[in-house]
Nucleic acid binder design. Structure first.
Lengths: 234, 234
DNA sequence: AGGAGTTTTCGCCTGGTAGTCAGAAACCCT
DNA sequence: AGGGTTTCTGACTACCAGGCGAAAACTCCT
């Protein structure tokens, strides 16, 4: 055991950082994928990513690789997901990959390179390597955190009406939610606050909706969901 | 970007698998650590772990490294935590480490090697590298999952009284919980079931408590805690 | 054998939160 | 001015967690 430390061994394997970048576009949740020109998996769609450099953290590596695709400043959130190490995950030889989850607010219109495109997560094309299952893993993480954190800030525009926010949540969660509940819950938790302004009504008329914003652009757990929580904490 | 795939580059860095193994002992939550004999961090306590071998998954690697310390069959649960990649985390040179969380049921009396010992998590000794913060990360994961999954099965004996189970939860969570609530909640969720047997009362007398067991030894999410859940799911 | 002490078990009550629904409010268009 | 549309607000219901106290079941001591 100590030998590991006393002689940091050479090899290991190429380590790459991958990113599952998600955005709500046209009321559907999309993942960013690029199409592989070469074997293996030529023509299949893969997650953006690349090798970890000598003096780089994984987080910095992901950000650097993504810079080739999008404005990194557009990322509303970036967090580590999991590390895949199956020796057979790349037919050419062993690689270890650490996947990240990246989120882009829905109001940003991202210009992608030629080989890269958005794909609805509920209708993914043929994917390369284990990237399909990594996308599913990212989806699970996003959906869980949307419910018990304020993570919505990373998917929503700077300000929005409750109806617009509802569309974002419906697309991301994949099931219907009512605007009434969304508003009441997020307001009580202190996740949302009104800006004081109103948005113009739609062309069909209707009462002008109030505009809201997320109170904090930092990830916070807003529902402790600790069922055996101590009496004083509630 | 494609170059990454077409020529799997050499270097990368030594990749190791680490494990935070936790067990409730004498009503306190303990972490398994071994004392480093050499520099750096000579005398400090470190997490068990070691290098990833050529044909090994990270999960298998962790299990193999732990076999040097404990019976792997004793592990009630093992899951990946996170991957640390800070270039400065090892003063001798760069390493990347993937940490796992391992749990051992409280009734097993694990015999540890000479250099290895259990330490209460609320009074950790001086730790090596970034291992102290990794233990804290594991703690957070355990405490969260105890509340919304059936993870307790990995910390508790095969059968137990509610009072015994309460002691395990109190130790693991770090705060007081009432036996009444614990019983009612876990029973309603279908996590616990009575064995039908009774345990003998303590030496002071008292009503003989019923024995319970966890219904499933597999990790399951028992509280969807999805606040915006669809109507039918409840 | 009976009573005191101990521990578990069960039922009731309370408070807080999510889900539903209907009506009021505010605006556009004809 | 009135009908259509959308948002907002409040009331009602259901469910669940937390707290408390009484009843049950047992041991020990006298």
């Amino acid at each position: 055991m100590a030998s590991v430390w006393s002689s940091p061994e050479r090899p290991a394997y190429p380590h790459q950082a991958l990113a599952v970048v998600l955005q709500v576009r046209s009321a559907r949740l999309h993942a960013m994928l690029w199409q592989r020109p070469n074997e293996p998996f030529a023509g299949a769609w893969a997650l953006p990513g690349g090798p970890l450099l000598p003096e780089e953290t994984l987080g910095a590596s992901v950000a650097r690789q993504l810079a080739a695709k999008v404005e990194v400043a557009h990322l509303g959130h970036l967090e580590q997901l999991e590390t895949r190490s199956d020796p057979g995950r790349d037919p050419r030889g062993r690689t270890v990959a650490t996947a990240y989850l990246g989120l882009i607010p829905s109001h940003l219109d991202v210009v992608l390179p030629e080989d890269t495109a958005w794909h609805p997560v509920d209708a993914l094309p043929t994917t390369a390597f284990d990237h399909g299952s990594i996308v599913l893993s990212a989806l699970g993480r996003l959906r869980a955190k949307l419910s018990y954190t304020n993570l919505g800030f990373a998917l929503a525009p700077p300000s929005f009406t409750i109806a617009e926010l509802r569309d974002v949540y419906v697309a991301a969660l994949g099931y219907d939610v009512t605007a009434t509940n969304l508003q009441r819950v997020l307001l009580r938790r202190g996740v949302l606050e009104p800006t004081g302004e109103l948005a113009p009504p739609g062309r069909a008329g209707g009462r002008p909706p109030a505009l809201y914003r997320f109170v904090s652009p930092e990830l916070e757990v807003t529902d402790p969901f600790a069922v055996f929580r101590p009496p004083t904490s509630r």
